[in-house]
């Protein structure tokens, strides 16, 4: 099992009030699965994504990622896990505005200590894979929305992570560009990558093989997508 979530709970304390965001999630994801997580706002979708992405730790329960127990790791240990295991793709792209596409893609490699020449080569390859080989030295504001998201995908790929975690990756794109981005994810999936997609759009979720629906901090339904 790549991901094993056992009775994951997350409770936020706002002042003296305890607000449960996740009330016991049990989910497993295998290698090379393509999973979509859906749910209305307030369902605990973002909280779950933060925990799966190792940006946050659960209040209770166990999270095994690639045989590492990440449930109670320190900030710095989590940073290393994120660097090694997770490739993030965000709705708002989250590129560094003053850095070139190439430099943006190099970032995860800087934090794992890859030497400069190797770093550059890997980043160039990743940009080639998303079809941006000719835009490497452009800054984000010189790129279209779709191109920016491709840069973000290249950045997610460059470290060869266990999971690509995409949070509403088409949310800021028009539908045609969105489709193009979804095609890239499909290609990546076909190439052996594990993809977890967080979305509230049914037609986006249907690109995946399996949809996990959350409601009120619990898994409401967890089923395979058949119609393709």
């Amino acid at each position: 099992m790549l991901i094993e979530l056992q009775s994951i709970e997350k409770i936020y304390e706002i002042g003296t009030v305890k607000v449960p965001a996740l009330k016991g999630i049990n989910v497993t994801v295998d290698k090379n699965e393509y999973v979509a997580i859906m749910g209305p706002s307030g369902s605990g979708k973002s909280t779950l994504m933060n925990i799966v992405g190792c940006l946050d730790t659960p209040s209770n329960g166990t999270y095994m990622l690639n045989d590492n127990n990440v449930s109670d790791m320190s900030d710095d240990e989590l940073a290393e896990i994120r660097n090694r295991e997770i490739g993030f793709v965000f709705q708002t792209f989250n590129l560094l505005p003053r850095a070139s596409a190439l430099h943006n893609v190099e970032l995860p490699l800087i934090y794992n200590g890859t030497p400069a020449t190797k770093r550059r080569k890997q980043a160039e390859e990743a940009l080639d894979r998303v079809g941006l080989g000719d835009r490497m030295h452009h800054k984000p504001n010189e790129l279209s929305g779709g191109q920016r998201q491709r840069v973000a995908i290249a950045r997610a790929l460059v470290n060869d992570p266990s999971i690509i975690l995409a949070d509403e990756p088409t949310g800021n794109l028009d539908s045609r560009t969105g489709e193009e981005i979804m095609e890239i994810f499909e290609d990546l999936h076909d190439g052996g990558n594990t993809i977890i997609l967080v979305t509230h759009e049914e037609y986006i979720a249907e690109h995946s093989d399996r949809i996990i629906r959350l409601r009120d901090g619990l898994v409401e339904r967890d089923e395979a997508v058949h119609e393709r």
Partner: peptide, 16 residues
């Protein structure tokens, strides 16, 4: 702040 968030998400530790 946002840049720091991005760097941390991509694996920057406190020391970095």
């Amino acid at each position: 702040t946002r840049e720091i968030g991005i760097r941390k998400a991509l694996g920057a530790r406190r020391f970095d």
